[in-house]
Amino acid sequence: MTQDKNDPIIQVTDLHKSFGRLEVLAGINETVKRGEVVAVIGPSGSGKSTFLRCLNLLEQPTAGHILIDGVDITDKKTDINKVRQGMGMVFQHFNLFPHLKVIDNITLAPLQLKVFPDKESARKAGMELLDRVGLADKAGSYPVQLSGGQKQRIAIARALAMSPRIMLFDEPTSALDPEMVGEVLKVMTDLAGEGMTMVIVTHEMGFAREAADRVLFMDGGIIAEQGRPEEIFSNPKNPRTREFLSKVL
């Protein structure tokens, strides 16, 4: 990426989302800069996941605007599929395609969306990604044969196969056995080190503190407090942040 390190890549203004009468997001304003790693923390039901899922329109916002690289994705005329190709997403429950081998999980979208001219080059790129997450030997396996940690690393590789500029992580380690959390966080830390723009909803406070450039604390559908991780974790100003952190740390 040659673009300016500091130009905004995600701009959210006055984002609202309601499910029926329940207001989950109550006006969010937030700007993420290119290459920034943002951790979103907060109690369950605070709207963290909904916020993240609005960023690639898996949830349709009720009101507000979201600009990705300057393109307003809440505009009906925007080709959301095109925008999504530039944004990878990693889910809590992996959502690997169980009927496809690992390598085909990775190459399905790039092949269908013609990112690669032929099967061979897609496969080669897929193998490189598998190598990067340390699972090249699993290319021919089916997802059911993998552990949770391996599945999530494959899911990350699958998202990376579209060469996204932004990666969204929705509680990527919450469904993992404790001993597998580390291997997934390691891949994510590497990714952050390579300058990937990342928005991560997480309960891993240690990871948020180490890897994030900025931490957002959400509560009641708004960003109640945000700042550099050391500020948030050592010296939270909002009493709700303090209360939350005292429970989880």
Partner: peptide, 12 residues
């Protein structure tokens, strides 16, 4: 989640 995973990759 299968649909979401597909759509999040940019598949129609």
């Amino acid at each position: 989640g299968q649909t979401e995973a597909g759509r999040s990759l940019g598949l129609k």
